[in-house]
Design a protein around this nucleic acid. Structure first.
Lengths: 239, 239
DNA sequence: TCGCAATTTATACAGTCGTACATAATATTG
DNA sequence: CAATATTATGTACGACTGTATAAATTGCGA
């Protein structure tokens, strides 16, 4: 499908929302249903549920209650709509990077590892429960494990910076540990966090008693991951 | 295999491999190419690379070098072929369950947690490097995160027993810890292991220096997860 | 009111998909 | 040999896909 890099096609000018320009007279009136946002939210929810490839443009349009062609009018190709969703939520990512870089990773802080893990994970966990947060967290988990080229491009573009920021900070907190071992440990932590926010099996294994909003659960998670990173201090260096 | 749900359509009898019946005269001669196995291996590799939905029956047939209709002749629907792949590798799963149940989880064993984690993870990690092991491990990781109904049915059928065996054994090793907290920790461990065997980002983040065959890496992983489980001992009970 | 731009809509195109089916080729048995 | 079972194959069907395009409708400043 890709054909890709420069798929613009050139001829058609992509629609930009010139709407909502009756200006700031009465911002909270319903003001003619915002169908662009409806499409964006519909796509986000569907991609989060089923993954990129399993959602058709028709599904998105149907759920949003608009004709199919309107999706292309506002967002161009399916792939660009996918990217727009993440761009729309990018603040969630930059906030996490900012919190990571606020942590004191110097030798004076004995809790640097746990502080770092908390700064990295807590924004995601506390996001759960809010409506948009639940949907987007699930979308990220789905996308992180989606082997398709559209999904990997998104992860590389939006989440590699976060990964590098965390690994760099953890390298400062654990100055005697080889960088590659920290990267591997980061992978394990990501895998665990993705399960926390995205796995559906937990309800089956706990017979429906699972509640991911429990704050004690968040504390358990941070302890689990922090203890893992701390084991790197004593381990054998890689061969 | 159950073949199951009864989508059979009734009329057509599914092919069963009556071949290789020229008996035990000369088992290693090429004996007319085994196209059934070729299809099975082709499908396994493609599903592992791209996930269930992103692979077409035509892709499978082309890679195996057989006409499309032969896939249906041997395996019926795509969904049944998917299940047959896992049934074919089921010994990998039962071996892990057996190793878990061999571990002494009584109070006399101070290393019960680490022994359990090793019994659970080591068969997967050491499988990597063998050709079939690499492919199947990746397939499991893809399937575990595939939200489609075909994939979730497979995980429930083949991997829920492994999960319950591990959780039960860990409950014996940590008798004072609530069961649901162990289930959550198990989810984190699964997430980490899936990243170990299935993530492609590691090469990007380590600038291509990652080598998952390194035995020190296996030791790091088991230490990481064991330390996580051990934190459950001291944690606050859930609210 | 007209005129222009923004938005909306129906429809069509060229592909790919899973699956089925009739027939051909080959092997096995009598 | 003939008869029968197994394996192999080409082809076609209806459904669904992403995307494009021309035309209709609406909103708004002049």
């Amino acid at each position: 499908m890709d054909q890709s890099e420069d798929p613009s096609g050139g001829s058609r000018t992509l629609a930009r929302p010139k709407a909502a320009r009756r200006s700031a007279v009465d911002p909270q009136e319903p003001q003619r249903p915002d169908r662009r946002s409806a499409i964006l939210l519909s796509a986000e929810a569907l991609f989060a549920e089923r993954g990129y490839a399993a959602v058709s443009v028709r599904d998105i349009a149907t759920r949003a209650g608009v004709p199919i062609a309107l999706v292309g009018y506002y967002f161009g190709r399916k792939q660009e709509l996918f990217g727009t969703i993440f761009a729309h939520r990018q603040v969630y990512i930059t906030e996490r990077i900012a919190r990571i870089e606020e942590v004191d990773c110097g030798p004076s802080n004995p809790n640097a590892v746990a502080d770092l893990v908390r700064a990295w994970a807590e924004p995601v966990i506390t996001l759960r429960g809010s409506e948009a947060g639940d949907v987007f967290s699930l979308l990220v988990a789905r996308t992180a494990w989606d082997p398709g080229p559209e999904a990997t491009a998104i992860i590389e573009r939006f989440y590699d910076p976060l990964a590098r920021a965390f690994v760099a900070a953890m390298g400062r907190a654990l100055p005697d540990v080889a960088g590659d071992r920290i990267v591997w440990a980061y992978e394990y932590a990501v895998g665990a966090l993705l399960m926390y926010v995205g796995d559906k099996r937990i309800e089956r294994l706990t017979h429906g008693r699972a509640i991911s909003a429990d704050p004690a659960l968040c504390a358990d998670f941070i302890r689990f991951i922090s203890a893992g990173f701390n084991t790197l201090r004593q381990g054998d260096p890689p061969a």
